Computed example of a mutant assay.
Amino acid sequence: MSCSSRPFRTSPAGRKGRLLPYKPAGFSKVYDKFKDPQGAWVATGALAFSFLYSTATVGSGIRLTPRDLVDPTWKGKIASSYPHDDDAVLYLYTLYVQKYGWDWVAELAAQDVQFARGSNSPGDAVFGGQKAIGVGTAGSAVPSTSSPVRFVVDDGVPFMSWGQRTAILKQAKNTTAAKLFLNWQLSTEMQDGSWNGWSVRTDISPPTGLKKIWEYPNGNLDGFPRFMADRAAVERWKQTFALYFGEVKGDPTPGSLGLHPGA
């Protein structure tokens, strides 16, 4: 089985016959854009990247937007994953550029931002009390009075969302186990218990206060696959952000790296 941290680019492996078509139980209930019609892949989780902030430090009644991050008040108090090290974070930053312009990027670069590899790092810094704001990380927007942070998906604020795609390789050692895994992942029990409140299934409603992930026009759900498909443009974006934020430094994202060149 193959699990990617970014969506397969127009299913090239599926077109070349490398993926095993399979439609697990609940496949018909999966949002149409979260599945290949022939079953070459299916999204098993709905995710979003945005920014979050500590309500204790910023204030529970304060509503920050990305534009506010360049306010001198937050200098030295922001953590971010490198946009030129992670394609999902890169796409989020391109949305910010389109909304706020390159001058905003230049001002952010002067904010003494703590950049690190790994989209987990901004959240770790905020939850750990080291920084007030984290940019380029996943989070839960489920309304809560007890959470120490607020993950922003407000109307008018750009963020990026996608369906985490899963597929079975035809040459996998145990396709039966992979099929069982897909059925488990798409079960109502698993989807209804999503940590961020969102499901890939159309028959499961999010908690009160949230919309289904595809109902957020500012979530840019359709844009990420298109962005990923143009690799030349992706590289240009990466190199441009490197000019503003410097070259990527530090250890790779924590955890298993999986297959990579030279493995």
Rank of each mutant, 00 (worst) to 15 (best):
K23T: 12
W102P: 08
T188F: 02
N220V: 00
S205Q: 14
R9C: 09
S11I: 01
T57Y: 09
F49M: 06
V105K: 07
N218R: 03
A263Q: 11
D155C: 08
M228W: 03
W237H: 13
F127V: 07
T188P: 03
K173E: 14
V234H: 07
K23W: 07
S199G: 01
A177N: 14
G17F: 09
V126H: 00
Q111S: 03
T137S: 11
K249M: 06
A263L: 15
R236T: 11
L92N: 02
F241R: 07
K23Y: 11
G123C: 02
P148H: 06
S5M: 14
G39L: 04
V135Y: 07
T10A: 12
Q171G: 08
M1R: 03
R226C: 04
P7E: 14
G246A: 06
K35C: 11
V152E: 14
L108M: 13
M190C: 05
A46D: 01
L20H: 05
Q191D: 12
I168S: 04
Q98S: 13
W162I: 05
Y22G: 11
G17Q: 13
G193P: 09
A106Y: 05
S54T: 02
Q111E: 13
P24V: 01
I168Y: 03
N120Y: 12
Q164S: 14
P24H: 02
Q98W: 03
N174S: 12
K35R: 15
Q185S: 14
F159R: 01
P217E: 03
R9L: 09
A110N: 14
P261R: 13
A79R: 00
D251Y: 10
P72L: 10
A56D: 15
V42K: 05
